[in-house]
């Protein structure tokens, strides 16, 4: 492996952070400490961490309704994440967004969205902006197999292809759009095939193997940076929990779940690191312990944080405008 021990341990730590964070969220949902809906990323960790390790800090990502992993992989902090999920004032979005709307625009995370497929054109616009401002930034646009059946997927790929924009479309194919299997609702099973209609290259990688994801995305990122336009990368993956907490998972078998559990990206990567004598079992246990402590400390921070002040309900709907542009007394 060409990465340093430090880098590789960092990837493992990030994936563990995501897994333990999601397990904690499940627990807090059950206790009704977290309200509302949360779509958990457990099982898909290698995609977000692998993809984000292939870009630079000032590059952009757009996320999805299943976006906790993307946020953490892009450098998001566990306490602010957990506080946001709990609707607290200290969260990334001051508790206004919750699970489905986490963004950290200053860190290049242009946000999650509650509407499937709706961030594809936003990613295209960010790539247009990067190109026009000549910043050499690229955009990683995460979305699921379900989103690739939505009309805006096609509008977005077409626009990015025509304008040769620096965007990598990262399809997380976890086989299901909520309960409906891709084989029951998509005309093709390799979502990468959909790139053909837009004359852009596509690649398929093992979404359970972080290094495979990283290498594949890296090629697409290099292409984008060189001005050669977008690529569609499909990562074959699986979500371990149901679509949301109320999902009994009647649409898939226990055998299938077990099969994918055996491909766990964290277990696989840990084994590889041990086999290659990069980390010892003890070192891995130590990393897991650090993750556990970090998640627990995030939980504590979130629970102890105050709720937003109700007086702030109507703040930030509009950006402030200078007086010469706006009559401040008008009704909005």
């Amino acid at each position: 492996m060409k990465e340093s021990k430090e880098e590789l341990s960092g990837y493992l730590r990030r994936m563990m952070d995501i897994r333990l964070f999601e397990e904690k969220v499940m627990e807090l949902l059950a206790k009704n400490i977290i309200k509302g809906a949360s779509h958990l990323y457990a099982g898909e960790e290698a995609v977000a961490v692998g993809a984000c390790s292939a870009i630079e800090e000032d590059d952009y990502i757009t996320s999805t309704h299943r976006g906790h992993g993307h946020c953490l992989a892009k450098g998001g902090k566990l306490p602010e994440m957990m506080a946001e999920l709990c609707g607290k004032a200290t969260g990334y979005c001051k508790g206004r967004g919750g699970s489905m709307h986490i963004a950290d625009v200053t860190k290049g995370n242009l946000g999650a969205t509650g509407i499937v497929a709706s961030n594809l054109p936003v990613a295209v616009g960010a790539a247009l902006s990067a190109k026009m401002r000549k910043t050499n930034q690229v955009v990683l646009c995460f979305f699921g197999d379900g989103a690739s059946n939505n009309g805006i997927f096609h509008e977005s790929l077409n626009m990015a292809a025509v304008w040769r924009l620096p965007v990598v479309f990262v399809c997380e194919n976890n086989l299901y759009g909520m309960s409906v299997a891709a084989k029951r609702c998509s005309a093709v099973q390799d979502m990468a095939d959909k790139a053909k209609g837009y004359d852009i290259p596509s690649m398929i990688c093992d979404g359970m193997d972080i290094l495979d994801v990283k290498e594949t995305i890296k090629k697409a990122v290099e292409r984008a940076r060189e001005g050669d336009g977008p690529t569609l990368v499909e990562c074959k993956t699986y979500r371990y929990f149901g679509h949301s907490r109320s999902d009994p998972r009647a649409y898939r078998t226990k055998e299938e779940e077990k099969e994918w559990r055996n491909k766990c990206p964290i277990k696989q990567f840990s084994k590889k690191l041990i086999d290659n004598k990069i980390l010892t079992e003890e070192e891995i246990a130590q990393i897991e312990k650090q993750s556990e402590e970090a998640v627990e400390s995030a939980e504590k921070f979130a629970i102890e944080s105050p709720y937003p002040d109700v007086k702030e309900l109507m703040d930030d709907i509009y950006a402030p405008s200078p007086a010469d542009l706006l009559n401040g007394g008008a009704i909005r």
Partner: peptide, 21 residues
Amino acid sequence: DTAISESAIAGAAIGAAITGM
């Protein structure tokens, strides 16, 4: 000039707007 893609026109404008254009 764009394709006849109203959703992408609006969406791309948003993406460009939040990143400095």
